[in-house]
């Protein structure tokens, strides 16, 4: 049986991963995904397990190399977007990227910031980063994305107080502020969680590898 679900995750790592694993527990195996859609096919409940990793800080070439490497390790992979803007023939600056990873292109690594990994359920934990320093780096990269989104939302919120914006109708201006506040909370919660986790891992990495 085929099933298509439309969904968007503000908590794009942990929230999305948990949902995919819940679907797998209910007997749905991921078959493909679009910007807002997930296609599933029926399978035995608990037959597969999913992990979502962030690759949006890598260059396009490095991200493709990483994906190819992951596949040689026996995982099935899917690329997934973080943002919701359709793009073609676009170049975008990503402040949270590393080196040339700060430049995202469409076609290329734009809208392919995440990798969804699938493995058969074998009773072993789905751990991709096992070294404390490595775990810290991967969580820090995610925290930086959330931080960027929260900062952009805060800047937009501040812009609503400019004289030109204040001249708009009160209902419109408060509607926009309310929407931005909700976005700030939606991105802010996973940001706080990631920052706390990164801090904990940094402390651990001083003691353990």
């Amino acid at each position: 049986m085929q099933k298509r679900v439309r969904r968007y995750f503000f908590d794009f790592i942990n929230g999305q991963e948990k949902w995919l694993n819940d679907m797998a527990k209910r007997g749905y195996r991921l078959k493909g995904c679009g910007m807002l859609t997930y296609d599933f096919e029926s399978c035995q409940p608990n037959a597969f397990e999913y992990a979502v990793i962030f690759a949006g800080n890598l260059t396009n070439a490095r991200a493709k190399d990483y994906q190819a490497y992951i596949e040689t390790m026996g995982f099935r992979t899917f690329t997934k977007n973080i943002g919701l803007k359709y793009a073609f023939g676009k170049v975008k600056w990503r402040p949270y990227g590393k080196g040339f990873g700060q430049i995202a292109t469409a076609p290329g690594n734009y809208n392919n910031e995440l990798l969804i990994l699938e493995k058969e359920q074998d009773g072993q934990p789905f751990e991709l980063h096992t070294d404390a320093a490595d775990q810290y780096e991967s969580v820090k990269a995610v925290a930086m994305v959330y931080g960027w989104e929260v900062m952009m939302t805060a800047v937009l919120f501040a812009l609503t107080f400019l004289p030109a914006a204040v001249n708009s109708t009160i209902a419109l201006i408060w509607g926009i502020r309310g929407l931005l506040l909700i976005l700030g909370i939606l991105f802010g919660r996973p940001m706080v969680k990631s920052v706390r986790e990164a801090k904990h891992l940094k402390d651990e990495s001083r003691l353990y590898e």
Binding site: Y69, E127, D134
Partner: peptide, 11 residues
């Protein structure tokens, strides 16, 4: 020691 695929890639 069981290395994660991501950690090994970095190494």
């Amino acid at each position: 020691v069981v290395l994660g695929a991501g950690t090994l890639y970095g190494a």
